[in-house]
Nucleic acid binder design. Structure first.
Lengths: 197, 197
DNA sequence: GTCTATATTCCGATAGAC
DNA sequence: GTCTATCGGAATATAGAC
């Protein structure tokens, strides 16, 4: 019978690493910060994970999957129509991003810096999807990638822009949450309108 | 008569700093990289700018203005209607971002990390703008900030998502440029559709 | 103004005791 | 497995000659 109330040392380190890396990025993170946040000693970090880089890669892989893994089940759902798929995506993402507001900036910024390289060929996964078929049937002229930029932009961009908007006095934390809750119902409507124009 | 072909040392450092900071972020940048990129010695950097932080702040201020300064002239243009304003914004941003594709990720990521704090109260600048009036007249129910998230998301997000999309094999450099050129004409249509729905 | 050399702090990683 | 102590290198910043 495993103890439930206390995580293993390895997991404590990883959980601390998730927080610190996401907040400060790879270069801004010091392994000492992670150790302190985990309540353990610096040496243990290198005992469990060989290096800062290795630990980062484990965390980063999780985060990439967390950010983009939501898509494929929806893309391949053959029981829902287009507008229902937009609802699913809006709801799944807004739920997850309200819990993890700094995730997109972290992942996209680190991918841009090349600190992490994975080769996941999604091109065919997307072009063969049910969603791609439904889009093509609805509007054969639009490029699916063009549309995907728009859909994801509508969902994800507010979370990326929020720190700037806050500094400029354009929104507060509670206002932002309300805006995102309202956005759930707006995004499917907007995405449909975009697709038909 | 000033020489035109050779920039001053101070400007050479600053120009190098713009490149390196934008590429690697504040924490990932070493002052040695900037010095080497500028073709000068490390000591000169501290001679002209007191510290890495000071130099960063000067660069960052420029970049924030470059990213958000495009908006106010359009917001206060009383000679254009809504759809024309959307056209202006799409064209200005896409021109600028094709020249500076890494600018948004850099600025928004560094603002999120709190490496830079400016207090620019834009709240009133926006709510008092001609654009805000025109939006309210067109659709009194939509929150202007909600709409601004959408408009900027449509324009800016592709540039933030591009590195990920490239790694996933969803786009190439030349494909991306074509998509963005097509996007100029699409965004005004989409923004209008969003506003009316 | 510009350089070389160096002071000083910081950080990732390891040695070695328990 | 976990800790303390420390090594070795890297990074910012400055001293001082020219």
């Amino acid at each position: 019978m495993k103890k439930l109330k206390e995580a293993s040392t390895e997991e404590k380190i990883k959980e601390a690493a998730r927080r610190v890396f996401t907040e400060k990025g790879y270069s801004g993170t010091r392994t000492r910060d992670i150790a302190q946040e985990a309540g353990i000693n610096l040496a243990l970090l290198n005992y469990y994970f060989r290096s800062k880089q290795k630990l980062f890669e484990e965390v980063m892989l999780e985060k990439v999957i967390k950010l983009f893994g939501l898509l494929s089940p929806v893309f391949y759902n053959s029981d829902s129509n287009l507008e229902e798929k937009f609802e699913e995506i809006a709801n799944l993402y807004i739920d997850m991003l309200l819990e993890n507001p700094t995730l997109p900036t972290f992942v996209l910024s680190e991918l841009a810096k090349g600190h992490f390289a994975i080769e996941i060929p999604l091109k065919e996964m997307i072009t063969n999807s049910v969603l791609a078929d439904q889009i093509k049937k609805q509007n054969p002229d639009i490029d699916p990638i063009q549309f995907l930029f728009s859909l994801l932009g509508l969902v994800v961009f507010p979370f990326i822009g929020k720190p700037a908007f806050r500094q400029f006095g354009l929104t507060t934390e509670t206002d932002f949450t309300k805006l995102m809750q309202a956005r759930r119902r707006l995004i499917p409507v907007w995405a449909t309108a975009i697709l038909h124009s």
